[in-house]
């Protein structure tokens, strides 16, 4: 969704349309850009060609003039500064990426100001996921290099170390501006508790199938929908999928599984059960998480059947070419 290649006049419209940043924020940014790029003073924005002429205090008021009020002497303090030429609002106007430079300077200033505040120990800071480089590029509409954006990220990481109880509001605001809309680290999976009968419940999905598995300490017996593994799944591969969480961690003779699966086909049900058994096992032994993660028993496979397209026979298949 890069917009940095567009001419400057078009960028803002496109940003409104496709930027991941909230609309209000975008609009704010657009106004800012305008003012920063072209403003001389707010009052003179109406007409660039002919700014108001001030005649100073010494000029006399003409008698019987057209205007009843006549020319009032304007106070020097009230009157905005008049520049003879257009002056950019930001000194970084002449850099290659003025918006980026501005952002970096703002953050650097914040860091300089608050670098003496106490920080938390490494690892104790709240986990943050910052906007990606592409998102930032779309936001500012400039071709920002990755290494440049890393400077911003470094400062943000340092600011994030400030102790939360002493975090100044402006730093918090700056951090919020660069935070991703959805923080993946806030999504903490709920762990099923071990119930009074010693069971844990895990749920899993794959393709169109859903599965629930109750895992209890035992001798390695498995029942799926009331059937043994051999009756439930004809393919040995599918059977292995069901007990893969137990097999890959060497726990196959330590637990019994009682599972329900529905929807989809055999492969879907078997692999939904992989996930369900994996989660239920992790509730018994949380220390197995890395092993289960490596075995692929905790990751939902998001692949679904590809939709059929018009003009195609299936998702990709094209009709055979026929002469005439």
């Amino acid at each position: 969704m890069g917009a940095s290649w567009l001419p400057a006049s078009l960028r803002n419209t496109l940003q409104c349309a496709c930027s991941p940043r909230p609309m209000a924020l975008n609009r704010l940014r657009i106004f800012n850009t305008r003012t920063r790029h072209f403003s001389t003073s707010p009052s003179s924005r109406a007409s660039f060609a002919a700014p108001e002429i001030s005649f100073g205090r010494q000029r006399e008021v003409p008698q019987g003039g057209r205007d009843q009020a006549g020319f009032q002497p304007v106070d020097e303090e009230e009157r905005p500064k008049f520049y003879a030429r257009l002056v950019p609002s930001s000194p970084s106007y002449f850099t290659a990426q003025p918006l980026f430079t501005d952002d970096l300077l703002v953050l650097q200033n914040l860091l300089r100001r608050y670098s003496t505040l106490p920080v938390v120990k490494p690892g104790e800071q709240p986990r943050m996921s910052w906007r990606s480089l592409t998102e930032y590029r779309d936001q500012v509409g400039e071709a920002v290099k990755s290494s440049k954006y890393q400077k911003i990220v470094q400062i943000l990481n340092r600011l994030n170390y400030i102790h939360p109880s002493l975090m100044p509001p402006e730093v918090r605001a700056a951090i919020n501006e660069y935070k991703r809309d959805i923080n993946a680290f806030q999504n903490i999976a709920k762990v099923s508790p071990v119930d009074r009968l010693g069971r844990t419940l895990g749920a899993g999905r794959r393709k169109a199938a859903t599965a629930r598995a109750w895992v209890v300490e035992g001798t390695g017996e498995v029942l799926v929908n009331g059937k043994t593994l051999a009756e439930a799944f004809g393919r040995v591969h599918d059977r292995e999928s069901v007990v893969w969480a137990l097999k890959s961690t060497g726990r196959i003779d330590k637990y019994n599984v009682w599972a329900l699966s529905m929807g989809g086909g055999t492969t879907g049900q078997a692999e939904a059960l992989t996930l369900a058994v994996g989660k239920a096992l992790m509730a018994h032994e949380p220390a197995l998480k890395p092993a289960l993660r490596r075995a692929g028993c905790l990751t939902r496979n998001p692949k679904r059947v590809e939709r059929k397209k018009p003009g195609h026979v299936k998702a990709r298949k094209m009709p055979a070419w026929v002469k005439r």
Binding site: G220, V222, T228, L229, R239, V243
Partner: peptide, 23 residues
């Protein structure tokens, strides 16, 4: 060993002998 027997036994639908052989 015990581990492999347990694995084959479980995969064969709780010790169905034809399935153990097949596996």
């Amino acid at each position: 060993d015990e581990q492999i027997v347990a694995e084959k036994w479980a995969l064969a639908g709780n010790g169905v002998i034809g399935e153990i052989k097949r596996n």
